[in-house]
Structure formats: C-alpha cells, structure tokens
Simulated scan of single mutants.
Amino acid sequence: MAKPPTLVDLDAANLESLPCCGVKNPEHPGRCDKNRWLKTYLKKGLRAKVLLTADQRQVGYIEYLPGEYAWRGVDARGYLFIHCIWTHYTQNQHRGFGQQMIEACVADAEAAGMHGVAVVAREKPWLASSAVFLKNGFEVVDSAPPDYQLLVKKFQPSAANPAFKTGWDDRMKKYGTGLTIIRSNQCSHIAKFADEIAECAEREYGLKPRIVQIKSHRDAQNAPTPYGVFAVLQDGRILADHQISCTRFRNLMDAQPVNPTAHS
C-alpha cells in the first residue's frame, strides 16, 4: 500500500525547492513573486503547508495566517484566517485531504490561543466551496456581494465573529473610468493572468489599463472586492473579481458597451 501524503511546512529554507501552488519551476515569475511574499508573511505568523506524496509530488496546499494580516476584505482579528486550500487533480479529491489540512490549521489555532479559524468561500474559481468547511464544523457568519461567504469555527463562543468589510460601492469610486487591473503577489498565478489581460486590452481594444499593485494586507483588506488580491474593473463596475483568462476577458468586454476612455 502506498504511503499516504504528508503535510510539510514551507519555510525560508525549503520554499525554493518544494513545489508550491501547483508550480514546480522555481524560476516561474509568479512563483518568484509568491516566494518573496511568503518570506515577508512567514515573519508575521503565516503557515503554508504542502501536501506531498513520498516521491515529492504536490497533491494539496493550505495557507493561513493571523487574521489581522489577511489578504481578503475581512476583519478577522483573533482568528487564524485561511487564504487558500485545495487538492491537486481530481483523483486526489474526496479522499479526506481537505479535512487533513483543515485539522492541521485548527490544531495550530488552538495551540496559539486564537478565537478560532475563519475563511472566505464561494462557489466560483480560486476560492474553496463552503461545503468542505461546513463538513468540518464551520458555520456561515457573514456574506458579501455577489456571493461570498465568511465562515468560522469558533473555540470561544463569546468571541466576536469575524466580518466582511463594508462600503463596497465607495471603494469602487476611487478607480474612476477606464480599465483597471488590480493585482498582487499573494497568488503565484496572478502575474500570468494580469499580464495577458493587459496585453489583450491594448492589442485588441486600444485600452491602456491602469495597473494597481496590492502591496500589503491593508491594501487587500480595503480593495473593492472581498477577494482583495485580483480584479478587473471597467468604468466603475467589476468585470471580474477573480483571475480570468484572455478568452473570458474578451467575452466580458464584447458583451457590454466599452467606454473608450483609457488611462494613460
């Protein structure tokens, strides 16, 4: 019988050599950005765990940190906050790996004396579904448009619940007209999507987008969407609040009137 995968903590000594976020190549630009981001937030209590087979193949990943440093539009002080959790390849799903990773996070939260564990979920790409958390004792405590849910597993019933930030319309107003791409280094896949969309916008639509780099957890918590780390905005509305392909970008642009105003 094959040895079950084990969780390995990423740290400053091994994050260059172990696969992370499904990216094996340590020279991958997005991976380099992610590694720099990890080194910064490891110093703030971030834990990143890779689920590895005996032959060092990545089958899962979970990343969490103290809620005050969360890169999502939330107020989660006192909780460990999960950014990402996933299993790689469909053959590794429904095998208890998600539960294994969540239990590791819960154990770390209990050991650190936190109020509990919080996470943002939705039924769209780039965030986990709420189902895996509900199965593991979490409950929904808040929601944000269009379909985000904030879930928590509390150790202290009297502790205040985490909550989404508010004022989403006001956050949008500061970006004005034209095309804006909001990007960050929190996910190693963002650089590729952001660069391709920017090139497509200029080449096919004559739009030079404004690029806004999310540089800190404060920036992410005050972004115009709950996801916080990536968005495409057009003339005061959200085209995409998670990473999308060029094909999807074209479809969204072609489906609605485009204001020719561009940022120089």
Rank of each mutant, 00 (worst) to 15 (best):
L239H: 06
V152H: 04
V117Q: 00
D108F: 07
K44V: 07
K135H: 14
G176D: 00
N161S: 15
A231F: 02
C84S: 13
K39G: 03
D147F: 07
Y79E: 04
L38D: 07
K3E: 14
H94E: 14
G78S: 12
R95Y: 05
P5V: 07
V117F: 01
F155N: 04
F155M: 05
R95P: 09
K192P: 07
Q243W: 00
D170N: 13
I182A: 02
F133T: 13
T177I: 01
K34M: 11
L150G: 02
G30T: 04
L252G: 11
G116T: 03
P66D: 02
G96V: 05
L46K: 01
A160W: 00
P19K: 03
E196H: 06
W71L: 01
H88Q: 15
H217V: 11
A163N: 08
H88C: 10
L80T: 08
C105A: 02
Q100F: 04
D147Q: 00
T53S: 10
T6I: 09
G45Y: 12
F97S: 02
Q243Y: 05
F97D: 09
V229Y: 12
D75C: 10
C246R: 05
E27K: 09
F97Y: 14
G22P: 00
P19C: 10
V132D: 03
E199I: 12
P145M: 11
I82T: 05
E63A: 15
Q213E: 15
G176K: 06
L233R: 07
R77I: 13
T225R: 03
I238Y: 10
L38F: 12
H263T: 13
D235C: 07
L150F: 03
R171T: 02
N259V: 15
G178D: 08
M101T: 12
K39W: 06
G60H: 08
A231G: 06
D75T: 10
E16I: 05
W37G: 07
N161G: 03
T53A: 12
L46D: 03
S143N: 11
A194T: 11
S264N: 15
V132E: 13
W37D: 07
N222W: 00
V229M: 01
I102E: 08
M114V: 12
C32F: 14
V258W: 05
F97H: 04
P209C: 07
A231T: 00
V74L: 12
R210P: 07
E27Q: 14
P26M: 07
P226N: 00
Q56M: 10
A231K: 05
V117C: 08
Y79R: 12
Y227M: 14
T166E: 11
L52P: 06
N251W: 03
N185K: 06
Q213H: 10
L127M: 13
W126C: 13
G22M: 11
I197L: 13
A262C: 14
K24S: 14
V140K: 13
R171H: 04
N14K: 01
R210E: 15
I214G: 03
P145I: 02
Q91D: 10
A76Q: 03
F230S: 03
R218Y: 15
Q234H: 15
D241G: 02
L52K: 05
V140A: 09
A191S: 08
F249M: 04
I214M: 11
A191C: 02
I197V: 13
L252P: 08
I182M: 10
R72A: 15
A231W: 01
Y227K: 04
Q156V: 15
T40Q: 11
Y89I: 06
P157G: 12
A191P: 06
G98Q: 04
